[in-house]
């Protein structure tokens, strides 16, 4: 955080000829046309495809700004300080910094959350859900029609101990309104067999985790399936491309449970490319704390992410007390 966090309300401007309002949050101005969002700040401006912008924005809000940096693209994004959030433009892009047009402003998390939600509501039309895979939803392009009345956000669903336990988050099923996704029509839906001796009812537990993932109606939207102390396993179904580039403030681990994802890896601070990782079913890979990564999943796939949610980690990595990679060998 580089300055005192601003607690401000987003300013809503008049609707343009397409019906969409423009917005101002601190020094940032947001407007859209049929295809693009236009972002201005005191020293520069940027243009981005509207689909990508909305897909990134609803995830950023739903995740509570997630761990670390969420790059909407190589220029614009947010950095979570857990209570305050930086909105930045060009602050982690070598070209923008060299040109002197990089900009960063710090807000309270509540200001950014409310502001982004206001923009999303105004700019998302009925029939388009940015959390769905592109083949499963309508288009965000064109003039304003009718605002979507679907819930725009799906918050980061967090099992406290394990999915399906009494009093914990429910496992997805037909009954919860989650049919098997078309891309996982061949995934077995059988349940584990549990035989409990008298007196131990409720103490043994097992679920079909792959069935749970196969029933997710959203993509690139992880939910916690199990937690032991501060170790969280998060599962998610992935299709098309991760609409953000994630720069973590800690190490995390990816487990490819099915199919494959291609990960583009860049230096976190400069955006310089480091290469490509192709993860296939059964592969495990660390995502170090000094990179940003973006996934591309040709077919809907299952991914598990193991996170360490210890609250002191960002400071330990940022200060260099912990190496930005997980293992010395």
């Amino acid at each position: 955080m580089t300055e005192e966090a601003k607690n401000v309300d987003i300013v809503v401007g008049p609707a343009n000829h397409l019906g969409y309002s423009s917005f101002q949050l601190g020094g940032f101005e947001f407007s859209r046309d049929e295809y693009f969002v236009h972002i201005k700040w005191p020293k520069g401006k940027h243009v981005m495809e509207i689909d990508r912008f909305l897909r990134a924005m609803v995830r950023d809000i739903g995740w509570g700004f997630f761990y670390g940096w969420i790059f909407f693209d190589d220029v614009f994004g947010t950095h979570n300080h857990y209570g305050t959030v930086d909105i930045f433009a060009g602050a982690y892009d070598e070209g923008c910094k060299a040109a002197g047009i990089d900009y960063l402003e710090t807000f309270t998390s509540d200001s950014v959350s409310k502001g982004f939600e206001t923009i999303s509501k105004n700019w998302i039309n009925e029939g388009y859900d940015p959390l769905n895979a592109p083949m499963e939803t309508g288009s965000p392009m064109g003039e304003k029609t009718r605002e979507s009345d679907k819930p725009l956000l799906r918050n980061f669903i967090a099992a406290k101990r394990m999915l399906g336990l009494k009093g914990d988050v429910a496992v997805r099923s037909d009954e919860t309104g989650h049919p098997i996704n078309r891309a996982f029509a061949d995934v077995p839906v059988d349940n584990p067999d549990i035989e409990v001796e008298p007196g131990f009812e409720g103490q043994l537990h097992a679920i079909n985790l792959f069935d749970h993932i196969a029933r997710s109606d959203v993509t690139w939207n992880p939910s916690i399936s199990s937690a032991t102390r501060n170790s969280l396993c998060c599962v998610t179904s992935e299709e098309h491309m991760l609409p953000v580039i994630h720069g973590n403030d800690r190490n995390e681990w990816f487990f490819q449970l099915s199919d494959e994802i291609h990960w583009k890896v860049q230096d976190k601070n400069t955006g310089r490319p480091r290469g490509i990782i192709v993860m296939k079913a059964g592969d495990v890979c660390a995502m170090p704390a000094d990179i940003r990564h973006q996934g591309f999943s040709p077919k809907r796939s299952m991914l598990m992410v193991m996170e360490n949610a210890s609250p002191d980690l960002p400071e330990l990595y940022a200060s260099g007390k912990l190496a930005p990679y997980p293992i010395e060998f």
Partner: peptide, 10 residues
């Protein structure tokens, strides 16, 4: 008691 799990069961 016991649990029998197959692929994908947690």
């Amino acid at each position: 008691g016991k649990v029998r799990g197959r692929r994908g069961h947690q």
